[in-house]
Simulated scan of single mutants.
Amino acid sequence: MLEMSFEAENKLEPEKKSELAKKLGLQPRQVAIWFQNRRARYKTKQLERDFDRLKSSYDSLLADHDSLLNDNLLLRSQVNR
């Protein structure tokens, strides 16, 4: 239930927090802390995904760069013959 509520909105209004706490038999503070922790985990995962995407782009650009350098060397050697 908490996970579904987080997917719907990652910040809780006080009324929704109280409602969830009552349904789950928890204190409102426990629900608030769960949401804080879940937002922190979400942010960490998002950073990991962003890093992976950037690393992939970097690796691709590096490969293109190396290929261009090799092409450049080949062309220079052909011109200098």
Rank of each mutant, 00 (worst) to 15 (best):
Q78G: 01
D52W: 03
Q46G: 03
E15D: 10
R41A: 08
E19N: 09
N80G: 05
E48W: 07
Q78M: 12
K22W: 03
D71H: 09
K45L: 15
R38N: 07
S67E: 13
P14F: 02
L26D: 01
K17G: 00
A40Q: 13
L62C: 07
R81C: 03
R49G: 02
D52L: 12
P14S: 13
S56G: 13
L26Y: 11
K17N: 05
D64A: 10
V31H: 00
N80M: 07
R29C: 02
W34N: 00
S5D: 04
D66L: 14
F51M: 07
K55W: 10
K45G: 03
K11H: 11
L69Q: 14
L69E: 09
Q36W: 06
E9S: 14
S67I: 02
H65M: 09
P14L: 09
W34K: 02
A8W: 06
K23R: 14
Q30H: 10
K11P: 00
R76P: 01
K55M: 12
L75N: 06
P14Q: 06
R53T: 14
K23M: 12
F6V: 04
V79N: 06
S57V: 05
L26M: 15
V31E: 00
N72W: 07
K11D: 06
L75C: 04
L74I: 05
K45V: 05
D64Q: 15
N72D: 03
S77T: 10
L54F: 07
E7A: 11
N80Q: 14
E7M: 10
L73Q: 13
L24Q: 05
L74N: 08
D52K: 09
R41F: 08
Q27S: 10
S67M: 08
L69I: 13
K23S: 10
K22G: 03
R41H: 11
H65I: 07
R39H: 05
Q78L: 14
L69N: 14
L69F: 04
N72T: 11
R53P: 01
K11Q: 12
N72C: 13
L24I: 04
H65L: 11
A32Q: 15
S56T: 11
V31C: 01
D50M: 12
E48G: 02
M1V: 13
A32V: 02
S67P: 00
M4T: 10
P28M: 02
L61Y: 08
A21Y: 01
N80H: 09
E7V: 07
Q36V: 07
R81I: 03
R49M: 13
R29P: 00
E7D: 13
K45Q: 14
K23V: 06
K23C: 04
D66E: 15
L73R: 15
V31K: 00
R41V: 05
D64L: 10
M1H: 09
D52S: 12
D66N: 15
R39T: 06
L2S: 02
N80A: 15
V31R: 00
N72S: 10
R38A: 06
R29K: 15
R29T: 08
N80K: 14
L20T: 00
M4L: 14
A63T: 12
L61G: 02
S5A: 15
S67Y: 07
N70M: 10
D52Q: 11
S57G: 11
T44H: 10
F51G: 02
E9L: 08
E15P: 02
G25D: 06
Q36P: 01
F6D: 02
E9Y: 07
E19M: 09
L73N: 15
K22S: 13
R38C: 08
K16P: 01
Y58I: 08
R41G: 03
L69Y: 04
G25A: 05
